[in-house]
């Protein structure tokens, strides 16, 4: 295990981190020359933003590749929990650092965009044909800033280890309400969502908003895996009163065998740019493990994919927490 750790050497990532930082700091400087207000400066700003995002993504990929090759060399299975938690902690440190350094410049960029937008409304700019182009361009920059913000936010929620708040949860009820949220989008692709919810399921002590987040992520992946027309089945059952099992199954594209071990890794995504950041399953697994449960996948490529979650009933733990009420 220790030789494995040596091989998973993240130090090669540092030059990228530096580049990202330099870019991140350069953008506000670009905007600082607000009197230089011209389409050129705006375009430059957009280009540097674009690069920052690219670099963030490639840093993630490099970290992941190093980790994966380390794993291959040691012939370790990713399912080894101890090993995975070490991978996670290095990715955590990395993402928390990046997130912090990117967030502040992003805030400033957003403010400057507002300021430039305000300037384009000024009387001296009125009647200038390019002003409208400039505003279009600003709107695009805003959209890209929002996208960066969201990725940073996801990274943070991956890194942050907030202690779950346990409440009594009727799992079937929680699933029903999340299926309703997913149903409209599914229907647009002629996908039916079937509920097979076991009655008399034990009430579990868990963190409802975290569970909702995981369910929506699985439902979204399932919907995206089906091209047109298909079935998603969500089922629950009790496992001897100690665990509740939730399965989300779809008859979509399936997952190739060689991808199975990687889908929970941060930034692993087969979806087109802008469609997926590859953080959904990484976050979901983080959540389920914090809740004391497990999440597994099985897939028949071209046929179906099933995600299985097990959450502990925890009856004793919640009584302690809620006793005060």
């Amino acid at each position: 295990m220790s030789s494995f750790l040596k091989k998973v050497n993240l130090s090669g990532v540092e030059p990228y981190l530096m580049t990202a930082l330099i870019f991140a700091c350069a953008i506000p400087l670009l905007f600082a020359g607000r009197y230089l207000l011209s389409g050129g400066a705006v375009a430059l700003g957009a280009i540097s933003l674009f690069h920052t995002r690219r670099i963030l993504a490639s840093m993630g990929r490099i970290a992941e590749q190093r980790i994966m090759s380390g794993i291959a060399e040691e012939r370790l299975i990713t399912d080894d929990r101890a090993c995975r938690s070490q991978i996670f902690s290095s990715v955590d440190t990395l993402s928390a650092g990046i997130a912090h350094e990117i967030n502040n410049p992003l805030g400033i960029i957003a403010q400057e965009i507002q300021w430039i937008g305000h300037l384009t409304e000024s009387p001296s700019m009125r009647g200038i044909k390019e002003a409208e182009d400039l505003r279009d361009s600003l709107r695009e920059i805003s959209r890209q800033v929002d996208r960066c913000k969201e990725t940073v936010h996801k990274l943070l929620s991956l890194a942050r280890q907030v202690e779950p708040v346990l409440q009594f949860v009727d799992v079937n009820e929680l699933i029903r309400s999340m299926v309703i949220v997913a149903e409209r989008q599914a229907a647009a692709k002629k996908i039916t969502i079937v509920r097979r919810l076991e009655s008399g399921l034990p009430v579990v002590a868990s963190d409802p908003p975290l569970l909702r987040q995981v369910l929506l992520n699985l439902l979204l992946n399932a919907t995206q895996a089906i091209d047109q027309e298909g079935v998603i089945t969500v089922s629950t059952r009790s496992l001897g009163g100690e665990f509740v099992e939730i399965k989300v199954q779809d008859n979509g594209c399936g997952i190739p065998r060689e991808h199975l071990a990687r889908i929970f890794t941060p930034f692993f995504s087969t979806k087109p740019e802008g469609k997926g950041t590859g953080l959904g399953l990484a976050i979901s697994r983080g959540i389920i493990e914090r809740l004391g449960g497990s999440i597994d996948v099985s897939s028949e490529p071209g046929e179906s994919t099933t995600f299985t979650i097990r959450v502990p009933v925890n009856s004793r733990r919640v009584n302690a927490t809620l006793a005060r009420g």
Binding site: E150, S177, V181, A182, R184, Q213, N217
Partner: peptide, 23 residues
């Protein structure tokens, strides 16, 4: 509270710390 309900915005809201996302 949401009228049209999108899974992506639900995930986003919960990630930002919302307790629930209700149709």
């Amino acid at each position: 509270l949401t009228g049209h309900g999108s899974v992506e915005s639900g995930i986003q809201g919960l990630q930002l710390g919302a307790y629930n996302y209700v149709m």
